[in-house]
Every structure is written in C-alpha cells, then in structure tokens.
Computed example of a mutant assay.
Amino acid sequence: MKSIKNFKHLFPALLVLAILVTSCHSIEVLSSWSLESPPEGVLKKVMVLGIMPNRGERENIELSMVNELGKAGVNAATATSLFGPKGFKGLSEEQIGKKLIGSDFTSVMIVSLIDKEKEKDYIPGSSYTSPRIVGYSRYYRRYIVSYDRMYTPGYYRTNTNYVLEADLYTTSDEDALVYSAQTKSYDPHDSKTLADTFAKSIVNELRVKGLLK
C-alpha cells in the first residue's frame, strides 16, 4: 500500500522530468565555408567581437568563444574587455578588420545575430493509468487495486530560435574572410546556454575545416 501511494505522488514529477528531457536545447550548423588555403597562423591570437542587440548576450558570446578557443590552445580575448562595450559601434565587419590591422591580433572573429524567431509547438495530451485501492480481501489477505485512466491535456509551447553567424577575418593588409558559418539554436534555456553551445559548435567546425589542429 505504501509503495502504491508513493508511486501516485511520484508520477507527476516523472511526467515533468520527461517533458524537460524531450525539450532539451539543440543546435544545427546551417552552413559553413573556409578558404582552401588559409593563412598560416591565422588563429595565433584572436579577438572575439559579438554584435548583438543585448549587451548581456554579447558578453556571453564573447566569453564563451574565448573560453572554447582557449581550451583548443588559442590565445583569444574579448573585444569588450579590450575596447569597451561601444568600441566598434556603427562599424561594418570590413571596417572592424581594418581597425585591427597592425595590431598583434592575427584575426578577429565577429559573431552576429542574424535572426531571432518565435514558433509555437502543440504538445498533445497523454493518458496513463493510476492505481487506486478499493478494498481488502480477507480471504486472499491482500488489497484489491483498481486502475483509473488519467488524462493530461495538450498545450502550446512557444520556442525561441536563434540564427547566429561567425565570420573570421585576418588582420593582415589583405583583410580576407577566412571562415564563415551559420548556426540555428533551437529554444536555448538562456543566453549562457546559447553562447556555450554555439561556441562549442564553432570550435568543432574550425577543427573540421582544418583551421584548428
């Protein structure tokens, strides 16, 4: 009897856990490109600049990229820590690259928010059986259990998806675009989750393209 009562109390928690597991954040690389013969040492020292409407999101993106590049052995720094939050305001990507020509940075990675879209998903309802004690049999010396069918209603869930682009430019006189990639993040829990998964995805792509050994 005690175990049945425990199950009845435990079931709602298990249901919530199942919903959380099935709604885990994911990321997809939509496209990626790199030079066939990238300049030697282009990732020797990288400045990471986030172009995002929200300052917190920008700083999270920059920090996550710098941390992931650091794990891969790349010397990297955030633009915010070097030039402040408005150091590159109003400049195009080409102008940003030119501003760094002659510095000790070998490249600049610019991360931009391309699109932020909301979509609604319908989560259908479900049914399950719940045990209920209805009596006690003295003859068989056991409890009589009945199973009731329970229903959870369907509902709509709003997801927010982000399309981010990473462009890597050299800071040499040529100011060439070396690498570019677009990703789509599906309903991240917060800006830190978005930044961390994006950074891991880009660093992995850099390895695939041969820019990171």
Rank of each mutant, 00 (worst) to 15 (best):
N60Q: 12
I61A: 09
I61G: 10
I61C: 12
I61H: 04
E62P: 06
E62A: 06
L63F: 14
S64L: 04
M65N: 10
V66D: 07
V66G: 07
V66Y: 04
N67C: 09
L69I: 09
L69V: 08
L69A: 04
G70K: 10
K71E: 12
A72D: 05
G73F: 08
V74T: 05
A76S: 11
A77G: 11
F83I: 12
F83N: 09
G84E: 03
P85C: 08
K86V: 10
G87H: 06
G87T: 05
F88I: 00
F88T: 00
G90S: 02
G90R: 06
L91P: 11
E93F: 15
E94M: 11
I96G: 10
I96R: 01
I96Q: 05
K98Q: 14
K99Q: 12
L100F: 02
I101P: 11
I101Y: 13
G102L: 04
D104V: 05
D104P: 01
D104S: 11
T106W: 01
S107Y: 01
M109F: 09
M109I: 02
M109W: 04
V111R: 13
V111T: 08
L113F: 05
I114T: 05
I114Q: 07
D115P: 02
D115T: 11
E117T: 12
E117W: 09
K120H: 03
K120N: 05
D121M: 15
Y122H: 07
I123T: 06
G125T: 02
S126H: 13
S126K: 13
S126Q: 09
S127A: 11
S127V: 08
S127P: 12
Y128A: 02
T129N: 14
T129L: 15
T129D: 14
T129R: 13
S130A: 11
S130W: 06
R132P: 13
R132E: 15
R132C: 15
V134C: 10
G135F: 08
S137R: 04
Y139R: 10
Y143R: 05
I144P: 13
V145R: 01
S146L: 12
R149D: 14
M150E: 13
M150I: 14
M150G: 03
G154L: 02
G154Q: 06
Y156K: 12
R157P: 09
R157S: 11
T158Q: 04
T158H: 05
N161M: 06
V163D: 00
V163T: 08
V163L: 03
E165Q: 14
E165K: 15
L168Y: 02
L168K: 00
L168E: 03
Y169R: 00
Y169Q: 01
T170S: 15
T171V: 02
T171R: 00
T171F: 02
D173Y: 15
D173V: 15
E174T: 14
E174R: 15
A176W: 08
L177H: 01
V178S: 07
Y179K: 01
S180K: 09
S180G: 06
S180E: 07
A181D: 08
A181V: 09
Q182E: 10
T183N: 03
K184C: 00
Y186N: 12
D187E: 03
P188R: 09
D190H: 07
T193P: 01
L194T: 04
L194R: 12
A195M: 03
D196Y: 05
D196V: 12
T197W: 12
F198E: 00
